[in-house]
Design a protein around this nucleic acid. Structure first.
Lengths: 191, 191, 191, 191
DNA sequence: CATGAATGAGAGTTCATTCAT
DNA sequence: GATGAATGAACTCTCATTCAT
């Protein structure tokens, strides 16, 4: 059973995420979070002593969830194409959600904070590694294009990061997103 | 002939760009720029009344230069493949320069400032349009893959934005960059 | 037999004394004492409602102990010289202990708190009075120098206060301390 | 000619000294100094970035003045007794002024601040050294008591520090002060 | 044009203190 | 009695911005 403290903590993270998405990392102040959560100054500081700590929690949670989902999918013994399609479908949904725009704040967090830099580096590498596994599997099955699987993974990751960051400007519809993610499929599939 | 004022102005923009690259948009203060340029408070205010104005200048300059280069290349009557290779070569160089990391700050500028949003929207659209022209030309020549040229252009733009933003974390070498940009070539070329 | 509450109370006073010695009076917060004693906020407040109260207890205890010791010594019918030597020996030991450095905090407590002012005034006067008794006795015995016994007592008290306060800076050895306290003996003894 | 900035700086130091005397070191806040000087927050911070810096200036000034006065007196070729009497007269006046009570704050400054510790150590040593010179001179002239001159100097310094600190509690009159400082004379003079 | 002293608004941070559990 | 979450006041510190020189 979550304690009173846990609930407050989750509320803070939720509201902080919204603020980071709206304003980027460094423009969000502790005061903003106080107001968004209706907590007093002291009450907020009991849980987090900086916005950096909140961002770190958010990004580490995102990474952990992604890692767990991927491990679960792998364990089911799916084919490379099934894994890829699951990946694409997940992003089709994710890129339409406001959460995807946390990317902009995460990028700035990496610039300004040494810990942020480490977390983001780890985050992008873990994404690259998951994709590399899928690509290597697909190459083994003979269904994906040849080439260094890690480089191919980076290519896809750059595209995903780019679309996440531009989401704010272009406000894409579901069709547009799917057209875009489908290019990944076409790019990877042989023939 | 540039006046003294122009020189000061260029100095400010140059130093401001370095700061934006280091810290993102909202973390750069007028005071930072004062110190970086060795100008006094009053002296700086004579030229720019906010960091937003500096960012606007930097992004508009980048866009104008790109547009002019593209118009010049088109006027030379180059083929689609030549234009694409020129585009790729330009980015090979650009992505290795620190300037490419201005992307992170530009993304935050778009979040926080109504003008910034407009400038960035215009900037990304103008890039998309230039690429769309090249793609349409290549499809006409029968050398590029079929498909909606604008959507294909967006795909490439997302990739470029992503790699620009991640440049800070991965510190890529020239080989890595070229491998990555070459995927654009492969993706576009028929067969 | 001390109750649980008494033990907690003594623990608080002990830790508070250490903090006052380290940081002076006003720099010690209730939070500091909470952490030093591992008590919760509410737990600490049950015993003392301010750091001023703790300081008052510490100083009153010190004074009471000194008064009792002196009364006991007097009751034994010692000579003035014996009483003086006991006084000097006591200070030889005390000035080497960290407790002597509570002086700095006590001085600030007197500045900031009306009660503190009264307690410190009483404390210094009671010291002066004890010394005055010894001096008067020694003058009666014909072994101490002539002069107003209270003024002479003040002179010695100022010296003791000074050495207590400087203890933090000079970290004196036992020899140095004894050389210093022995000057009191020489100053008082006739011939 | 003192600039506007210099005047402000001196005003700050003057008001800060008053506050330190009233409240001790750590109880004086930057806000207190703002109010005492009628400066704005930012205005104050232009000159001093902490109360520690102000205290450092005050103590270093005091030390420098004392050193210069002593050097000047020595240069006049005065006898040890003349130097001692000058020293005593100076303290007779000083101990009646509120400035002498800066001692309490200085003691706490030494506890809390590494720089403060160094400055206070240097301050007390420089006082000891000046006194040691006088005592050594007087011993050479055969007018002062025998004994290690540095230890004797420390004894006097402890007394001075003590009386400075207790000044706040006892609010002594000129007669009392003179009686006290005269004990130094008696203690030092042979016979 | 340029300087830098000064203002004042606002963010960061820390605690004394209370109170429901 | 004890806990620790929460409040709110006060303090530290930083800037954007102005303005007399």
């Amino acid at each position: 059973m979550p304690s009173k403290g846990d609930n407050t903590r989750n509320l803070i993270l939720e509201k902080a995420a919204e603020l980071f998405i709206q304003k980027g990392y460094s423009a969000v102040t502790m005061k903003d979070v106080c107001e968004a959560t209706s907590l007093s100054r002291g009450g907020l500081y009991r849980h987090f002593k900086s916005t950096g700590e909140m961002m770190a929690c958010l990004l580490l949670d995102e990474q952990q969830t992604a890692d767990e989902e991927f491990s679960a999918a792998l364990a089911e013994g799916k084919s490379a194409l099934q894994l890829l399609d699951a990946y694409i479908q997940k992003h089709d949904r994710f890129l339409l959600s406001p959460g995807s725009a946390l990317e902009v704040a995460a990028n700035q967090y990496a610039l300004l904070d040494e810990v942020g830099r480490k977390i983001n580096t780890s985050r992008v590498w873990s994404t690259v590694k998951r994709l590399t596994s899928i690509i290597r599997l697909g190459q083994g099955e003979g269904v994906f294009i040849d080439g260094n699987p890690e480089n191919i993974a980076w290519h896809i990751v750059f595209f995903i990061c780019g679309i996440r960051a531009q989401t704010v400007l272009v406000e894409p519809g579901a069709d547009f997103i799917h057209t875009q993610t489908d290019y990944i499929r076409r790019f990877l599939l042989k023939g």
